[in-house]
């Protein structure tokens, strides 16, 4: 029973890291229809860059903010220079961003070397919470809380703000939104900046738990795709659902049936794609 509870808690906190990882991608892919397969690499960059900043300044939260800003700006550059011009050319977007992902991984390798890093848990959140005989790291609870805050923020943005209304309208009909005189270009550029910044934010926050290594982006972008596709494209609550499914499945799989755990997520991913391509609670974006 206690193993089960711990596994469940681990699963949930892992799910929230996945949510943070996928939320930015969900915005740019599900809402704008831009396929940024360099998203995983941006996460890793956020981790390495953030750790370097933290090491320099010895300030955890400042490091987090700077890492998010840095990756956000890089993402902005990728969007403004390239992806903006590849509207509706999804295969080209994919080829380009996969290539950029490997380039970013290579730069990380170049600057910080090939060794895996383990993030330092900020001193305020070291230690564990004890409930009876169970011990659970505080930092994992912090991740869950931050994940919930980001979820609330995005949900509010999606349903209650003007930006949300514009991107929802843009989802339904891009031409129409343009012709209404709404500056869809500026809005989508900002959304992309925000999405990339979220990747870096997730990277630095997730590193104390997942660690980081230069070529990690590959595995991460696949996880991201799984989360977004399984949960459903176009709605942030879909991304949360997808993260919970993949996160819990993966954690429980590894704990109880390790031999097949490597495939379970893929199988779910493929089954959902085939049965309900728009995801469990999503809508068809394309």
């Amino acid at each position: 029973m206690s193993t089960f509870t711990i596994t469940a808690l681990n699963g949930v906190s892992y799910a929230f890291i996945l949510f943070l990882l996928a939320a930015g991608f969900s915005l740019t892919f599900g809402v704008m229809g831009v396929l940024n397969l360099a998203h995983g690499a941006l996460y890793v960059l956020g981790a390495y860059f953030g750790l370097a900043v933290i090491a320099q300044l010895d300030q955890f939260w400042l490091g987090v903010v700077i890492a998010a800003l840095g990756t956000g700006l890089l993402g902005l550059g990728i969007y403004y220079l390239f992806l903006r011009h590849l509207y509706d050319k999804v295969p080209e977007q994919a080829v380009l961003t996969i290539g950029l992902g490997y380039a970013i991984a290579n730069i990380i390798l170049w600057v910080w070397g090939p060794f895996a890093k383990m993030g330092m848990t900020p001193s305020a959140f070291t230690g564990v919470v004890r409930v009876g005989t169970l011990a659970f790291p505080i930092y994992r609870l912090v991740i869950i809380v931050i994940g919930l805050l980001v979820l609330a923020l995005l949900w509010w943005m999606q349903d209650k703000t003007r930006v949300g209304a514009i991107i929802r309208a843009g989802m339904d009909n891009k031409e129409m939104t343009r012709s209404l005189g709404i500056n869809y270009g500026v809005v989508s550029t900002l959304v992309f900046l925000f999405g990339a910044a979220l990747a870096g934010f997730a990277g630095i926050l997730g590193t104390p738990i997942l660690g980081a290594y230069p070529s990690m982006g590959d595995a991460l972008v696949l996880l991201t795709l799984m989360v977004v596709v399984v949960g459903g494209t176009g709605f942030i609550q879909g991304t949360m659902l997808g993260a919970l499914i993949i996160g819990l499945l993966d954690t429980f799989g590894k704990a109880y049936v390790p031999s097949v755990a490597l495939f379970t997520s893929y199988v779910i991913f493929i089954v959902v794609l085939l049965v309900r391509p728009s995801g469990l609670i999503g809508r068809k974006v394309f």
Partner: peptide, 30 residues
């Protein structure tokens, strides 16, 4: 999941084929 005609964006086909490749990578590893 591959739609009909150019009006349908083939993104889901793209993702399925990508997933198949990666699934085979995992199979080869294990």
């Amino acid at each position: 999941v591959y739609g009909v005609g150019a009006s349908d964006n083939p993104i889901y086909f793209l993702l399925v084929t990508l997933a198949f490749g990666e699934l085979l990578v995992r199979v080869a590893i294990s």
